[in-house]
Design a protein around this nucleic acid. Structure first.
Lengths: 184, 184
DNA sequence: GCAAATTAATGATTTATTCAAG
DNA sequence: CTTGAATAAATCATTAATTTGC
């Protein structure tokens, strides 16, 4: 009986710079492939085409808290390219790599990449829906609320090779942890 | 009735990025330094335990293997207590603390706590709705409700920038981070 | 009494919505 | 208005309950 500490936690006060880390790994698809060639983005390293910051030395944006990621053209370009390439929900590894690459063009974090894909995907879908299907399905306004079937395999024919023993490895793991202690 | 699932069939339909470009092969993609918490539990293959202890109240069975978190009674108890105490969407720090506490009663990770609150909150709401409970008193800190409510900082820090009072810098920061590359 | 087959819960992901910075 | 960020809703997927047949 007694754990008073919990009580304190229940209140949960005091926080400094809470940061949440989310890590995810692919669940089922994965389907190999990645590994691409050598798309050496490194070569694209550019001098941060940002607004001429009054600041002098390499002072990345992000004053101290409150500024949200402001993607550079390069970053957007790359992200869109990847999106067109088929990437929609990159797993942790991919996100890490992407982030690493994009960070060369400006400050960026994994979450930004994560969110970007989430938002881009969602908004593309939104546009599609709005611009098309004028008289397809009078759904009304319940795109996802319906319990009925949704999401149908558009291209479930890509089976081809590798079908023996699906790896099933990783399982998207989400972990929370503070990005920056509390300085800043 | 037979409520069967088709998850098995449904596989690899999602997106299957055929060729994720961009991958990189620079000089060291973040060097899998992660490994922060590599699951030591690995191929212990849960013996599927066929009814081990029929009457063993709450056994601290450590979920070995890449199975999902299986909370112990103690953990649940504490979590519910906290929930009742008002905690609904703990931030990273709180989650860390909670996790630390709960880990004393069984294996647990931050993500579990995070998910637990998400699910619990959602399902409580679900029940309420289902029962059309008249009493709509809850949410001590629901940021998103209806357009009428404006995001309210859970706890304001200090650090004022330009305006006055708080600066709501409490916004959770989400960062992607791989727990374990893939190992397995 | 056990254990496969079902069902009920619930942990973990994905998608839709909403808020708010710029 | 555009869109990064964050939450809520919906859904998938796995485990514990339970039911059922032996």
């Amino acid at each position: 009986m007694g754990n008073m500490k919990v009580h304190e936690l229940a209140r949960g006060f005091r926080e400094q710079e809470p940061s949440l880390s989310l890590c995810c790994k692919p669940l089922r698809p994965t389907s190999a492939a990645d590994t691409l060639s050598s798309f050496d983005l490194k070569a694209f390293i550019t001098p941060k085409t940002k607004h001429h910051n009054p600041h002098s030395h390499q002072v990345d944006m992000q004053p101290a808290g409150g500024t949200r990621w402001n993607p550079t053209q390069q970053q957007i370009r790359i992200l869109e390219m990847m999106y067109r390439g088929g990437t929609r929900t990159p797993n942790a590894q991919q996100i890490e790599q992407i982030t690493a690459q994009l960070s060369k063009y400006g400050k960026i974090e994994g979450k930004n990449v994560f969110y970007w894909f989430q938002n881009h995907k969602a908004r593309e879908r939104q546009k599609q829906k709005r611009n098309s299907a004028p008289m397809e399905r009078d759904d009304g306004d319940s795109p996802y609320k319906r319990k009925c079937r949704r999401r149908q395999p558009f291209l479930c024919m890509e089976e081809e090779s590798r079908s023996s023993s699906f790896k099933e490895e990783e399982t998207r793991t989400l972990e929370l942890f503070p990005l920056h202690p509390e300085s800043r």
